[in-house]
Design a protein around this nucleic acid. Structure first.
Length: 111
DNA sequence: GAGGTGACGTCGT
DNA sequence: GACGACGCCACCT
């Protein structure tokens, strides 16, 4: 394979696609589950997702602080927060309130 | 081919 | 408990 790196992108998309509605996860959890070694890789994968792999709930992925750091990469800055609120996730100032209450860990759910 | 950047996380002060 | 600096790996210029 010449594009092995591209495969790990799909790995990230696959995990993100498994996130249930009303739940959120962090870059670190995905990186740890896929053993990427760096949370930055997850962010890069989602950024390249813009290439057009399909439609995944990327708005359910936030950083460890619960901040919607990638909201600017969405079609509209309010799309991410609006979508989360629509799913029942409380968002305040582009930040998930009580993220621990909505946190979804792939290594704990997908096992 | 080399340097800089980035949807982050953790350690140290 | 809050703020700052370093590390990580892949992609872009």
């Amino acid at each position: 394979m010449t594009n092995n790196s591209k495969f790990y992108y799909e790995q990230v998309y696959e995990v993100v696609a498994q996130i249930p509605r009303g739940k959120v996860t962090t870059y670190g959890n995905i990186a740890d589950y896929l053993a990427l070694g760096s949370a930055r890789m997850v962010g890069y994968a989602l950024r390249n997702y813009h290439a057009g792999y399909g439609e995944i709930p990327a708005h359910r992925v936030v950083n460890a602080a619960g901040v919607l750091s990638g909201r600017l990469h969405f079609p509209t800055p309010d799309f991410m927060a609006n979508q989360l609120e629509s799913e029942g996730v409380k968002v305040k100032h582009n930040k998930v309130v009580k993220i621990q209450n909505y946190l979804w860990v792939p290594a704990n759910e997908l096992l």
